[in-house]
Design a protein around this nucleic acid. Structure first.
Lengths: 230, 230
DNA sequence: GTTCGTCAAGAGCACTGCTCTCGTTTTTTG
DNA sequence: CAAAAAACGAGAGCAGTGCTCTTGACGAAC
C-alpha cells in the first residue's frame, strides 16, 4: 500500500514536513510563544488558512514539535549511551547525563517546550507517551544491567513502608531491581532534569560559572545515591 | 513623607495594587499565556489604554507578578522553617522541601512563572534577585547551622579540583562550611526543584501516584547526600 | 486663579488564531 | 470513460491581542 501512494498524499506529506521544519526554526529563534501559524504560512508562500488543512490548530502543530523534541532527545541519549562499554555503568549513566544536558543546551527552546511549563491550554495528548519514554528506558536498562551484574549496593532497609509496591510502572523498566533502588533511581532522574532545567532556564546565572564540571560532580553524587559501584 | 501622600498618589497606589490583584487571579486561572491587559482593564471597568499609565508593558506587569511570586514562596519557606526546632536540621530541611512543594501545588501557574520556562522575551530584570534569594538564604542557614553544630559529615576528599573555590557566591550564604558540602547542598537544592517541577508540570502523570511520601523519601536521600546527621 | 502635570477615554495600527465560502483540482466511484 | 466525491488553496472576515497617539477633563502647586 505504501508504494501506491497517490500524488496528493506525497505532496501532503512533503508539505506537512515543510511546515514542521519552518515551525521548528521559528521555535528555535522566537521561542514557543512566538510561533505563529501565519508567519509559517507567509514563509511558505501560502495563505494562512491553508495551514489548517494540515494542522487543525496551533496546539496540534506544537504537539507535533513536542513529539519531535522527545524523539530527538531520546535518540541523542540512546546514541551517547550505546557508545559506552557495557560494564561501565557509571560511565553509561554519565553519558546519559551529558547527552541530556548537551542536547538541552543546543536546543533550549525545544527543551523548554517539552520539560518547561506546559504552554497552551495544558493538554499533553497521549500520542507523546511513546516518544517521551525513550530516555527513561535507557536509564532503566542501565540500572537493571548494573543490578544483574552485582554492581549496585542493596538498600532494602531504607524504603518507607508506604512506598512499597507503588512504583510498578517504574519497576517494569528495571526488571529484578529491588524497589528501594528504583526509588533511588527516580530521585537521580529528577535531579538530572532539575539541574538541566535550572541551567537552561537561567537559574544559575550570577550564581556560579563552570557548569559542566559542577554538573558532572552532581551527577556522580547521584550515581552514589543509586549505589552504582562501577 | 509617607504621611503627606497626596490623594493622587494614594489612588494610584490603590489602582496599581488592584491591577496586580486581578492579574494574579487571571494568572491563576488562565496561566501566564492567557494574561491579557485588556481583560484586566475590562474587569476594572477601565479602558485598556489606561493600564499603560501604571504598567508600561505587559512584561512589566509580569515582572511585578514574578517578584510577588518569589516573595510569596520565600515567605512560605521562611515561615515553615521557623516553626521547626533549631537543632533539628533534617526537620528544618524537610520543612523547606514541603513548603516549596505545597506552595507550588497551591499556585501552579505562579510557580510555572518563576521556575518554568521564561515566558516573554526572556528578560529577568535585576529587580527580582532580592526576592528570589529568600528561599536559598533559608537553605544556606540550615546547612551552616548544622555544620557549626557538628551535625554534617565532612567530605573534603571527593571534591574535584576544578571545582575548588568556584562557589564563592554560594559559600557566602554558608559561612565556614567547606566547599565540598556547599556543592552537595547545591545538588540537593536542584533536586528539590527538579522534583517539584516534574510534579507540577505533570511529568509524573501515569507514572506513579502517592507523590508526597515519595517526595519526602527523595528529600531524605538528599539530606543524606548533604551529610545532615540529625 | 492660572499654569502644569496627570489621568481616562477613544480611535487606530498591526498582528494573532480561527472559520467560512468559493472555485479549482485530484481522486474515487459507478 | 464520465460523474460524483473528496481535498485543496485562496480570500474575506470575526474576535481578540499589545501598544501608540491624541483629545479633553480633572487635580495640585505656584
Amino acid at each position: 500500500m505504501t508504494a501506491s501512494r497517490t500524488a496528493r498524499e506525497r505532496v501532503r506529506a512533503e508539505l506537512t514536513r515543510e511546515i514542521t521544519d519552518i515551525a521548528r526554526r521559528q521555535l528555535a529563534t522566537e521561542g514557543a510563544g512566538g510561533l505563529s501559524l501565519r508567519a509559517v504560512a507567509r514563509e511558505m508562500g501560502m495563505v494562512s488558512s491553508a495551514i489548517y488543512r494540515y494542522f487543525p490548530s496551533r496546539d496540534d502543530l506544537l504537539t507535533a514539535l513536542i513529539i519531535d523534541g522527545y524523539n530527538a532527545l531520546g535518540e541523542a541519549v540512546e546514541r551517547a549511551e550505546a557508545a559506552q562499554p557495557r560494564e561501565g555503568f557509571r560511565r553509561r549513566w554519565l553519558a546519559v547525563c551529558h547527552a541530556v544536558r548537551d542536547w538541552a543546551a543546543a536546543n533550549p527552546h525545544e527543551y523548554a517546550l517539552i520539560y518547561g511549563s506546559p504552554v497552551p491550554g495544558y493538554h499533553a495528548p497521549e500520542d507523546t507517551i511513546e516518544a517521551r519514554s525513550r530516555d527513561v528506558i535507557v536509564m532503566g536498562r542501565i540500572v537493571s544491567d548494573a543490578w544483574r551484574a552485582g554492581a549496585v549496593i542493596a538498600r532494602d532497609a531504607d524504603l518507607p513502608p508506604e512506598l512499597e509496591s507503588k512504583a510498578a510502572n517504574l519497576s517494569a523498566l528495571m526488571p529484578e531491581v529491588p524497589e528501594a533502588i528504583v526509588w533511588r533511581a527516580l530521585s537521580a532522574w529528577t535531579a538530572l532534569y532539575g539541574w538541566v532545567s535550572f541551567e537552561v532556564f537561567g537559574q544559575f546565572n550570577n550564581v556560579f560559572e563552570d557548569r559542566r564540571p559542577a554538573y558532572e560532580h552532581a551527577m556522580r553524587l547521584m550515581a552514589d545515591t543509586m549505589g552504582l559501584a562501577q
